[in-house]
Design a protein around this nucleic acid. Structure first.
Lengths: 205, 205
DNA sequence: CCATTAATGAACGCCGAGTCCATATAAGCA
DNA sequence: TGCTTATATGGACTCGGCGTTCATTAATGG
């Protein structure tokens, strides 16, 4: 008697009946809806109830698969931006660093991803599950890539051997996060370039 | 007829009757309760309702004076820690920077202030009122002090004249915030010292 | 083709946000 | 000093999201 056979136009999943459904299908719909909602309206509007509604899925399903709002948001973000994890090595460490930090600044300041990342980091400060996921799946891997590239530069004698690559990462990307999260000063590509410059040349007179 | 004349022991304000009360008195009780709650249980437990209860004050009063949960928390934090804003100038820029960044790391990693600051910055990402207050009353003034000290070093010829002090601030304190907010790596005093070292000497081979 | 399995959806209780209105008290005035 | 007025106050109220429970229904496998 339930005559609910409508074609799904785009984006808006139709309400299905009750009962078991293929997990993959549901998961895909959830991630799509979560990512879209996140980029469109930000973390403030990103509520479990809202995601359930937009994905045409029950809250129970969400709670079954994701431990917290934050982790769901993180998965939605990854699904939406399809981040390409790579750190090219042209042999020129200065050029490579500058290119990477510039690209990062462009991502943060030029797209809606910046706000989302800021809100995810913010949410992580009071959401242990998100914090763990963020470290393991986002900042950790990126940090590792940068450290690896810096280590190679050290081996090639382009960088002082006694400089800790892990600390350099904080002084390059951490500085960008600083301007993202506490925006007293603007986040520009010129800023990115000067970060690299300061560190390589040193600023002592 | 209301026989409610009890001595206020410590910390726990007695319930008063209805009606107007001296604003200063109420404000002091609110800030004390807010600060204590914040340091004791963190931002997750810091709810308007909870503060109202612990300060023995009605929610209406809180909403009348503070635009958001975050700004109330910020005021409570300042009331609790009595931050001493100073940036000594001994003439030795390296020593001064190292001392300041070290002290900052000690504050972040060694006391409960670190968690609170992290949670405030986190909350600010989705709370415009807190964001504005944080920039104007916390990060802004601190940034200005550091920039002023760096400018003096430039005038004295200790620092390259073409280095932007504002960017150096990001590469020193921003790096610390990075390890605070995305704790993939530990936040130690040795880290603080090496931040200064890297920047002053440069890391190019 | 049917029995088993397991995800689903709706409803429920709880809690905190933010608002409204009658009230009691402090402040102002005579 | 005594009264009036102005205003902060407190409790009640609505709204919305969280997280859970339980009967239901479809997918799965023999």
């Amino acid at each position: 008697m339930t005559a609910e056979r409508e074609a799904r136009p785009t984006g808006a999943p139709v309400r299905r009946g009750r009962g078991r459904r293929p997990a993959d299908e549901v998961r895909a719909e959830v991630l799509a809806a979560a990512g879209a909602l996140l980029l469109r309206e930000g973390m403030a509007a990103f509520t479990i109830e809202r995601v359930a509604q937009e994905a045409a899925v029950s809250k129970t399903t969400l709670y079954k698969w994701w431990p917290s709002r934050g982790t769901l948001a993180l998965d939605g973000y990854f699904h939406a931006v399809e981040s390409t994890l790579a750190f090219p090595d042209t042999g020129d460490i200065r050029a490579d660093l500058t290119a990477q930090v510039r690209a990062f600044v462009r991502l943060l300041a030029g797209t809606s991803a910046g706000r989302v990342i800021a809100e995810l980091i913010g949410q992580a400060q009071t959401d242990p599950a998100l914090s763990a996921a963020l470290l393991e799946r986002y900042s950790g891997p990126r940090r590792d890539l940068a450290v690896a590239r810096l280590r190679r530069a050290q081996e090639q004698g382009r960088l002082r051997a006694d400089a800790d690559p892990r600390i350099l990462v904080d002084q390059l990307w951490g500085a960008c996060y600083h301007r993202l999260l506490l925006p007293n000063e603007p986040l520009t590509e010129e800023f990115a370039a000067r970060l690299v410059d300061n560190l390589l040349r040193g600023v002592a007179a």
